[in-house]
Amino acid sequence: MRRHDRPEARANKHSSAVGDVHFYDEGDLEQLIGASPNPLVLILDCVQDPHNFGACLRTADAAGVAVVVVPKDKSSPVTDTVRRVSCGGAENVPIARVTNLARAMDKLKDLGVWLVGTADEASKSIYQLDLKGPVGIVMGAEGEGMRRLTGERCDFLAQIPMNGKVPCLNVSVATGVCLFEAVRQRQ
Rank of each mutant, 00 (worst) to 15 (best):
Q48I: 14
N52M: 07
R84G: 06
S76V: 12
R103I: 11
V82F: 10
R97L: 13
V47N: 06
D106F: 11
V47G: 10
A66I: 06
G89C: 07
V70D: 01
S86R: 00
A60V: 07
R97T: 08
H51T: 11
F53P: 03
A102Y: 04
V70G: 03
C87A: 15
L111A: 11
E91D: 08
C56V: 08
T99Q: 13
A104F: 01
S86N: 08
A90M: 06
F53S: 07
K74R: 15
V113T: 01
A104T: 03
D73S: 15
P50L: 00
D106H: 14
T79E: 04
V113K: 01
L57P: 03
F53I: 12
S76E: 02
A55G: 14
V82E: 08
G89W: 12
Q48N: 14
V78I: 13
R103A: 15
C87Y: 14
V98W: 11
V69S: 04
D73R: 15
V93W: 11
R103Y: 09
G89N: 08
V98Y: 09
G88H: 10
P71D: 10
K74P: 12
G88Q: 02
A104V: 05
R84T: 11
V65A: 01
D61R: 15
M105D: 12
G54N: 05
D110W: 08
D106S: 14
D61P: 04
P94G: 10
